[in-house]
Every structure is written in C-alpha cells, then in structure tokens.
Design a protein around this nucleic acid. Structure first.
Length: 784
DNA sequence: CTAGGGTTAG
C-alpha cells in the first residue's frame, strides 16, 4: 500500500513514525479520498502495533482539520482505540460523537471495549438502548457476558438471536470452554449442524481446546475427521491445535508428522511441538529444539522456564529468565508465576520480592492467578505475615488461593489457623483436603491427620495418590500397622493407580511399622522402581535388622543402573554399622565419593563414627571424628559416647561427654542420652543435675521409646518406663513371646539405636523418637 | 467499507 507515497510496513514502528510525518506535511485539499485512505491504513497499523501514541497524533490531526465529522474516519479512530485496549480514549471519543453514538458500528465497538474492561452491565445497558442491532451486536454482548463469567445470561441472549451465524455459535462455544463448561461446548457444537450452520476454522480451534481440556480424545479424533472433511487442516492455527490435541493424546508420532507436513510454521507451532518432547520426558531434546527454534515468543520462553522450575532445576530456570529479559521479551504473568515458584523452592526471598515488585508495577497484584504463587513463595520463605497480606488482597479468591494459604500456614506450623481457614472456605476440593491432611502429618499430628482423612471420606470427596501418600506417612510415623493395612485396603478400593509413588509409600509404611515381609511384597510387586523406592526398601531392611539383605538389594540396585542417592548410602552405612561390617562400610563410604561423586554430609560421617565405635574401634572413631572437614553433628559424639559406655572407656567417655555437653545445650535428645549414660554407670547425682537442667530450659523429654502395637493401639515405653500396666510383662518378654490383651506378639530387640534429627526424607519425616528394637505381630508361636 | 468468534504455557 502506498499512502501519500510512502512505502509502509506496519510492523516497523520507525516507519510508522516517518509515514506520520509525511502525512502531516501532505495537504489534504488535493484529494480527500487519498488522505482518508492513508489515515485509515495508518490507524490500522497503530491498531496492530498497539500503538496508541501514534494513533493519538492522527487523532489530533483529524480534530484540527475538522475531519472528525466524517463517519468513516471517526469510526476508524474508535476501532483503533478499542484494538489498542485504550478503553478511556475509546469511551471519550464515543461520547464526543454525539448523535452518531447511536451508530450501529460505533456501538458494537463499544460493547467490545466494555468486554475488555469486564463491564458487562454497561455493555448490556448500551445494547438495550441501541435503536438497531445486528448479529455482530449480539455476538459482542455474548462474548462480553462470557468473559465476565455470566454464562447463564450469555445463554439467554444467545437463544434470543434472530438469525444465528458461525461466529455467534463459535462465541458461545468459546465462552463455554473459557468458563470450563467443556461438555456444554460440545453439546452446542453438535447442535450447530441442526441449525444448518457449518463450523469454520475458529470453531474447530475452540472445540479442540475443549476436547483437550476434557481429555475427550475420542471426540477429538472425530473433530479431526470433520476438519479434514471440510478442508480446514491447511489453516495454520488449526494445525497448531491439532498438534496440541495429538500430543496430549500421546500420539507423538502423528503429532510430529503433522508438524513436519505443515506448509508454514509459526512460533505457536514450534511451541506446541516443544511440549511433545517434554511429555515424552526427553528434556534434553526439548531444550535442543528450543534453542534451534527460528522464533521464540514469551509463551515459548515461559513454557521452558516453567518446565525447568517444575523439574526442580531452579538455576537453569533463572538463567533462561535472564536470557529472556535480555532479549527484550517482556515476562508475563505466567513467567512471573514460574519464577515465583523458583524463588519458593530456593527460599530466595529477595528474588521473590523483586518479582512481587514487578507484579505490583504492572498492576497484576489483584490477579487470582499470581496470588497463589506469591502466597506460596512467602510461605516457603517463612514469611507468613506477607503471605496472609497477599491472600487478603485478592478480591476474588478461588479455591487455589485458599489452598495455597492453607498449605502455607501448615508449612509454618500454624495448623490450627490452617484448619480454621479450611473450615471457612466456600468450596473445597481434593487439593484442599490434601493440604490440610498433609499439614497435620508434616507437623507430627498424625492421629489428627488420620482423623481428618476419615472426615474426608464421609464428605464424599474422593482421595487421590497425594492423599494416600500423606496418610501412609502418618501411619509410618506412628508405626501403626493396623491403620496402614487399612489404608492399603482403601487404596485398592478407590482404584488408585499402583505406581512407583504409591509402591514406595507402602513399602516405607510397612517397613517403618515393622512388617518387613509386607514391605518386601509391595516393593517387589511395584511395576517400576526408582532410586527412591530402592532407598526406602534398603533403609527398611537395615532398620529392621536385615543388614545383609539390605546390602544384597543395594548390589541389585547398582546392577539395574539406578543411581543411588545420598539417602541410599545412609541406609547402606546403617546396615553395615548394625551388622558389624566395618570393612564393607568403609568400602561403601569410599565408593560413594569415588564412584558416585556424592559428597558425604554430617549424617554419613555420623554413620561412619557409629560403625567404628560399635565395632569397638573407639580410637579410630575418635580420629575419624576429628578429621571431619566441618563441624560434626552432635549425634556423632553421641554415638561415640554410647560406645564408650558399652566398652567401658571412661577416660574417653568423659572427654566426649564434655564435647557433647557443649554442643547439645538445647537438644533434649542429647540430654536424655547423657542422663542415661550417667544412670547406667550409677552416677545418680549427675543424672539429677541433667534432669534439672532440662526442666529449667523447658525441654520436654522426647527421648527413646519402645513401642508395641496391639489391636490398632500403639503402646509406647520409655527407657525404664514402668507406667504401662503390663510393662513388666513386656520387658520380660523381650526376645520372646508376650501375651498382650490376649494377643500373642513377638518382641525382637536388636540393638539400641538412635535416629534423630528432622531432615525430611523424600517428603517423609524420619521417626523422631529413638526406638529400642521393634515389634512385629505374628499369628502365634504354634504357627511360627 | 468498517464491527463479532482464535491457536502455543500456567
């Protein structure tokens, strides 16, 4: 197009500027038609560039020349403002139009403008006032109502339309899909044919989106057939939708074929195919494709950043974010939401606050979609107050916002408050239940967590994998085999998929409850095992005294090419320590570093000290301890002290006790251990000194206990504890059979072992109490 | 000769 002799590319803003200059120097008197056409095409360019600034210059010209009285030009101007999302400019121009504000096209434009602002009532008022309406007016109003979530209103208007068109049908379908009413969308889609209205490219795009959301792939395939029959597959956006559908269906091969066969591809096509590799788990391939893409927009970047963030690769996500910004692309809400979850996982408050700042600056702070990641970030950084403030600021909270707040409060130990919120929330879903249940379990309130699970069941909400993983953790934590078995039954009953997550949780629960046979059974039945499942089984075997078996399993794990983690080695070292396999322990400790490049942490060193000390190699243990490149854990000293007691090395005992005393000023477990050691050698005055100190410091005795489970009840006993009415019987029965409540139980005492600290183990807290042996229930001695 | 419905991520 050649307006005023200037070759014009609307995509180039500098060209727009020079075209504008030429326009202002052109005298319009020569040919009004040429001038007006030039103006129109410039205004079109402003609209596609969303450049109100340039549009306003043209507006000023037209005002000066008195050309605003021309209907065509003022309409073009109005359309420009609407397309640029400049509601206020559009609105004032419309009001200045005087009698022409009843113009059909102008009014239709204004309905669109109201729609952008979410002003459905004003749109309706204008619509009712209009002297004449056409199908465009009806469609614009329906779109506006749908965008405001007033689906019912939109439907009523839709059915009043005198003559339907593809566009009005498409508008209602799209509205249904946007409001999550995918089934209604499909129903209307089928009805179209009865009205003898044929779908077009846009209709197909909307309906495919609905099918994807519903995972109605059979319907999706059907729609694909219709697309081909009507010849829309050659439309670029339609092909893009088809690719998404195929990727979600899992038909990667066909998706790739469609992509390769496309005559032209755009950013959207490339971004859609990115997902294919991510879905297949070929993350490196995805990255390769991303780097090789001819064009990337903020969606492609955000998609990639989100994947890294979800994969726990926070650094890579941040690196990509930096690149994106330096390439001049504007991060959007979705990008911010990914970066916020990165900040949350890194507990990087500074970064999180920076993003929050951007969000505020862009005016997104009241947006529901950014609210939840913000709450999450603040909560993970321990800033409950800020999290609550964000929550309060969201004007229209959805279930996700409530869930984030509940999870955030639980994460910071505020379970009571979380429960209050849970009870207040207007609508709960399975995620809400999971948040509150896991909150209780995380905070060691396992009984209450299990109780809440029962309430959930009666409420009719269906539990899912995540629910059961919390509940099983609760059972493992209180070592309740009865409850655990019961939950296992529920998992089967509710038809929850038995995969690696459920299998691992069940293995762990059975192992922690002392039922090693069942643990082995569920472990071996797992369709697929990963490093976490192996670790759970190895640790379980080691904990229950089957050290040799634990090591055999570890060798199997190595053979199956599943790389052990630092937690696997904790189990392995534990097994060695408790079976007196000093050399093997040393071997694995070396191998962990040389073969797997895992840097030993405090707990590994503690295990090694324990290994040496238990074997009576006290001096070697002490040397090893002093060679630790960082401050040793108090537990290392405690292990050594314990061995000093066993091997009666009083001299070293004194030395080590002094060190432990220094380190463990505020740890009740340390005090308990110390007082027990004093007690065992009869230094009663020291015992009472330690107990008094504990009392003064307000430390509760949370020390070692034994437990025994009888008929769904877990009985616990502290060392020397005689409170339980049948304690004599129990202590006498150690290493043998005990008759408790007329149930025969076998009590095994392996060894005294201490397992403390609260570091989370793949989301499952280790048992905090010290257990002295374990108990398993058997059918009875006659059958044994 | 203008105006209404749209694909990719979360």
């Amino acid at each position: 197009m050649k307006p005023c002799g200037v070759v014009f590319n609307p995509a180039k803003s500098d060209q727009l500027k020079s075209a504008l200059k030429t326009l202002s120097s052109t005298h319009p008197s020569s040919s009004f038609n040429a001038y007006s056409n030039a103006c129109a095409s410039l205004l079109n360019a402003c609209a596609t560039n969303a450049s109100t600034k340039h549009g306003k210059v043209i507006h000023a010209h037209l005002t000066k020349l008195g050309f605003l009285s021309h209907r065509f030009l003022s309409l073009k101007l109005l359309i420009m403002y609407v397309r640029c999302n400049s509601f206020h400019d559009a609105n004032s121009l419309f009001n200045e139009m005087g009698d022409r504000s009843s113009d059909l096209i102008a009014s239709n434009c204004m309905i669109s403008a109201y729609s952008q602002m979410g002003l459905s009532d004003q749109a309706k008022r204008l619509f009712d006032k209009m002297p004449e309406r056409n199908i465009v007016s009806w469609t614009a109003l329906i779109t506006c109502l749908m965008q405001c979530g007033k689906v019912h209103d939109a439907c009523e208007y839709f059915h009043r339309i005198p003559t339907q068109s593809v566009v009005s049908f498409t508008a209602i379908i799209s509205g249904y899909v946007q409001n999550g009413l995918h089934i209604a969308a499909l129903k209307i889609f089928r009805e179209m044919y009865r009205y003898e209205v044929l779908p077009n490219d846009v209709t197909f795009i909307c309906i495919i989106r609905g099918c994807v959301c519903l995972r109605w792939f059979r319907e999706g395939k059907c729609v694909m057939g219709q697309i081909v029959r009507l010849g829309f597959q050659s439309y670029l956006p339609v092909s893009n939708s088809i690719i998404t559908l195929l990727v979600r269906m899992g038909d990667m091969e066909l998706a790739r074929r469609v992509f390769d066969g496309m005559a032209e591809k755009d950013v959207v096509s490339w971004t859609a195919i990115l997902d294919l590799y991510v879905e297949k788990g070929e993350f490196a391939e995805a990255r390769k494709l991303f780097d090789a893409m001819p064009e990337r927009n903020e969606v492609s970047w955000s998609a990639m950043i989100a994947r890294y963030s979800q994969n726990g690769e926070a650094d890579e996500a941040l690196k990509l974010y930096g690149h994106m910004v330096s390439e001049g692309l504007r991060p959007n809400l979705s990008t911010f939401s990914s970066i916020l979850s990165v900040s949350a996982s890194l507990e990087d408050l500074k970064l999180g606050k920076k993003i929050h700042g951007y969000v505020l600056k862009l005016g997104f702070d009241s947006n529901v979609f950014i609210g939840s990641p913000l709450i999450d970030m603040y909560a993970k950084c321990g800033k409950t107050k800020e999290a609550k403030m964000v929550f309060e600021m969201i004007p229209e909270k959805n279930t996700v916002s409530w869930n984030s707040m509940i999870a955030g409060l639980s994460h910071n130990g505020l379970v009571e408050e979380a429960l209050q919120l849970f009870e207040q929330m207007p609508e709960r879903n399975v995620v809400s239940w999971n948040a509150i249940i896991s909150g209780y379990v995380q905070n060691e309130l396992c009984e209450q967590g299990l109780e809440l699970y029962s309430v959930m069941e009666t409420s009719g909400e269906l539990p899912n994998q995540s629910t059961f993983s919390s509940v099983l953790r609760a059972c493992a934590s209180i070592a309740s085999l009865e409850r655990g078995r019961n939950i296992h039954g529920k998992i089967v009953k509710f038809g929850v998929q038995y995969d690696v997550f459920m299998g691992t949780a069940l293995t762990d629960m059975y192992a922690k409850s002392g039922d090693i046979e069942s643990a082995k059974l569920v472990f071996h039945r797992m369709p697929e095992k990963n490093e976490i499942s192996f670790t759970a089984m190895i640790q379980g075997l080691a904990d229950n005294g089957f050290g040799e078996e634990a090591l055999i399993l570890f060798e199997k794990m190595e053979e199956s090419d599943i790389a052990p983690t630092e937690l696997t080695f904790l189990g392995v070292l534990f097994a060695c320590a408790h079976c007196g396999m000093v050399n093997r322990g040393k071997h694995y400790f070396d191998q962990m570093q040389s073969k797997y490049h895992i840097k030993p942490k405090g707990k590994h060193y503690t295990s090694m000290v324990d290994l040496l000390a238990r074997a009576g190699l006290l001096q070697e243990a002490e040397n090893f301890l002093s060679d630790i490149p960082f401050d040793a854990e108090a537990n290392s000293w405690a292990s050594l002290l314990s061995a000093c007691k066993t091997y009666k090395d009083h001299e070293m005992g004194e030395r080590v006790a002094g060190k432990l005393w220094e380190l463990e000023q505020n740890n009740s477990a340390g005090y308990v251990l110390l007082s027990n050691i004093y007690a065992s050698v009869g230094q009663w005055s020291d015992v009472s000194r330690v107990r008094k100190l504990m009392k003064e410091k307000g430390l509760k005795k949370g020390g070692g206990c034994s437990w025994i489970e009888v008929k769904d009840m877990v009985h616990t006993f502290y060392v020397g504890d005689k409170c339980h009415e049948e304690s004599d019987q129990i202590f006498e029965g150690l290493h043998g059979w005990v008759d408790l409540n007329r149930v025969q139980v076998r009590v095994h005492v392996l060894d005294q072992w201490v397992k403390s600290g609260s570091e989370s183990w793949f989301g499952m807290d280790p048992i905090k109490s010290c257990r002295v042996g374990f108990v398993s229930k058997s059918p009875g001695p006659s059958q044994a």
